[in-house]
Simulated scan of single mutants.
Amino acid sequence: MSTLTLTTWSLEMTSPDDLVPAVVPGSEITISRAEVPSPEFSRFLYASVGGDIHWTDRLSLTREEWVRQLGRPGVETWVAYDRGTPAGYVEFDPQDDGAVEIVYFGLLPDFRGRRIGGHLLSVGIARAWDLASRWPERDATKRVWLHTCSQDGPTAMDNYRRRGFRLFHTETESKADTPTPGPWPGA
């Protein structure tokens, strides 16, 4: 099996004032929260968005593991729709120290390059900052952070920086080049 060099960048915002919202791409694009946790829908989004960019860490999870992850207080999934069709999503997970991690973000392949990603990320960041208004048991958000890597889409890092994220850590490692099934199996 071949190996590849993977670089992972961690980025953060420490104030809601850091957010630089993207232009709204058009009235046909809507973004709403998936208020009812659905392992099937979340797995569809995960496999469909990440299938061609090597997202594999959740593919082996059981339905029960998906239920546990999605059912934790403050875990939210926000979905972009193009005239009713899912176009992409952002999922975040709050931590106990007032940090909210954007754990997954991306668009299905057919929706990339249409300026939807900047808008979806802007909405996701804003909702991460006001998370405690929907989850009173959670601490107020003090920091929003994420990581991206050299296997993510070619515009990911630029989008994060344009929205106001700042780099705080870089890590490089060698890892096995694991083929991904693409968006179809399990989608």
Rank of each mutant, 00 (worst) to 15 (best):
D52W: 11
D93G: 04
D110V: 08
E65N: 02
T62L: 06
R68Y: 00
R112T: 14
R112I: 06
T77V: 15
S122M: 00
V79Y: 03
R114C: 03
R43K: 15
H119V: 08
G88R: 04
I102T: 09
S122Q: 04
D52Q: 08
L70R: 10
H54R: 07
P109T: 07
R58P: 04
G106S: 07
H54E: 13
L61E: 12
G71S: 12
Y89C: 13
V100W: 11
E91Y: 02
D93H: 14
S122V: 09
L45E: 00
V103P: 00
L107D: 10
G71M: 02
H54N: 12
T56W: 09
A99Q: 08
Y89W: 14
G50W: 13
R115A: 15
G71K: 09
D52H: 12
W78I: 12
E101P: 03
G51N: 05
A99Y: 01
T85V: 15
A80D: 06
L61G: 05
G84S: 09
V103K: 12
A80F: 06
F92I: 01
G98K: 13
E101I: 02
Y81D: 11
V79D: 10
T62V: 07
G118D: 10
G74E: 03
D96S: 15
R63D: 11
Y89H: 15
T56E: 08
F111V: 14
L107Q: 07
F105I: 13
D97P: 02
D82Q: 14
G84A: 02
R72K: 13
R112Q: 15
G51R: 08
W78Y: 10
V75G: 01
T56L: 15
R72H: 11
D52V: 02
V67Q: 02
G88D: 13
L70E: 09
V49L: 04
D110W: 01
Y104F: 13
R68F: 00
W66S: 01
A99G: 15
E64S: 11
P109N: 05
V49Q: 06
A80C: 01
L120M: 05
A47R: 15
L120W: 03
P94L: 10
T77M: 03
P109W: 02
V49I: 14
P86E: 01
S48F: 02
L121H: 08
G84R: 08
L107A: 02
L61P: 00
D96L: 13
G98I: 11
A87Y: 04
L107H: 11
D82Y: 07
G50H: 10
Q69L: 10
S122G: 10
E76T: 06
D52E: 09
G118C: 13
I53Y: 12
